[in-house]
Write a protein that binds this DNA or RNA. Structure first.
Lengths: 240, 240
DNA sequence: TGGTATTTGTCCGTATGTATC
DNA sequence: GGATACATACGGACAAATACC
């Protein structure tokens, strides 16, 4: 479990940017300087820098240098950006977290369910409805659909804790890629009953399709967020 | 303006995946096979594959291969993912597009405006309010703040067309990085008046901070979207 | 079960091109 | 024009995970 060189360099540079060793809008030391400092090849430095750029920390300019564009955010709380479990998220922020499972069923995918989840017709699945509380506030209603052949022997106890943790630690399954879609929908009865919507008549909906290491889509989930606590961050480069 | 080798390979593989030459859940030919086919080095093939992976087309697995996880989406319309102008977006989808500018002002940033935009106090800016129509439906209300020293000599005519096009073609300025934040907010008077909200009492809000090639943040924008037409796509890898 | 081949991951060094200063 | 800096591309070496026999 030793970290790779370019990840260590990436993390070191990231830390120095966050600590203002390399201030906002200044240039980083040149690649040639850095490779001497870190005692590595040019490629390795460049990989670290590419990682920083993809996360919105720096911006490179041909012939000029690498400019820091990181600015401290005022509001880092409730940031759902990475592929991260609800449990990991709440622990990272020292929040108290609780999950209430109020539906746990086993289904077989039919034509209409196939249209929604894109699981093949005939697939055996678990269907869950869960409410996620952060510091005793109900924030999210999850509608989870898991393939039974991948996420085996699920129990209510597991789903009250963390399904991903169970998959990774017990089943030795790995979660790799998630494709997400964000939309806004009118609230339904469940949203109204469980989330405290304070006057909002809609919710933020994150629909996700998740793949394991074998390329099997094992999860379809619709997460319905309390709108006044939902934030999603993103960072993009303009293609030329 | 010749394309680089790895981009050409990326686009070729992408096309073949979309056309089912390499079907869903199958493995791509190995890197060694591909580098012979394309007559290039291993690094170049790997860069193309990394590009595909970052866009959610494939997923690599150590020792096994590169698996296709691309699936045709049902609904590609109204997909706001890349850094793209409203004009580019509508042209790419053959939609009729129109922008109505109903406020055009020149301001100097004070303390309270600094808190919102994070422009330095004293910066001279343009402030615009615009409604964006797609096929005669009002979809978005934009509140744009542009630095006057970067986006020079803005006119109403330009803002009715495309500010980015003006910057790139006339000012020879380049747009590079955008940091975005998505939230849901209660509608305000403008939203209610201009967007047809059909019963929704809130809008999807995209707040963006945009940088030019010199690393100067020249734009702060709040785009307030009609909720039933708003979709945002995203793709993420779980970090180990 | 075990050994070998295959495949991807990391890292290095070098050469050349191109944009900026 | 020359120096500096990033961008692309090549080729090679070794490690690690997987597949196969």
């Amino acid at each position: 479990m030793t970290k790779t060189k370019y990840i260590k360099i990436y993390e070191d540079l990231k830390k120095k940017i966050e600590q203002n060793v390399f201030p906002y809008q200044e240039l980083l030391p040149s690649e040639n300087t850095l490779l001497k400092e870190y005692g590595c090849s040019r490629n390795t430095v460049r990989r670290a820098i590419a990682e920083l750029a993809s996360k919105g920390y720096v911006q490179t300019k041909h012939g000029q240098g690498v400019r820091v564009i990181y600015q401290e955010l005022k509001q880092k709380e409730y940031m759902f950006g990475d592929v991260e479990t609800f449990k990991e998220f709440s622990m990272r922020h020292n929040n108290k977290q609780r999950t209430e499972v109020f539906r746990f069923q086993e289904w077989t995918v039919d034509e209409s369910l196939h249209k929604i989840t894109s699981f093949p017709v005939g697939t055996d699945i678990y269907y869950l409805q869960r409410v996620r509380y952060l510091d005793d506030k109900p924030l999210i209603i999850d509608h989870n659909y898991f393939r039974k052949d991948v996420v085996q022997d699920l129990t209510v106890e597991i789903t009250e804790d963390s399904v991903y943790e169970y998959m990774e630690k017990e089943l030795n399954e790995s979660i790799v890629t998630t494709k997400r879609k964000m939309t806004v929908e009118k609230m339904d009865d469940l949203d109204e009953r469980y989330l405290q919507l304070n006057g909002y008549n809609c919710v933020a909906v994150v629909t996700s399709y998740t793949y394991n290491a074998d390329g099997v889509m094992f999860e379809y989930t619709q997460s319905r967020h309390k709108p006044d606590y939902f934030v999603f961050y993103d960072q993009a480069q303009r293609r030329k």
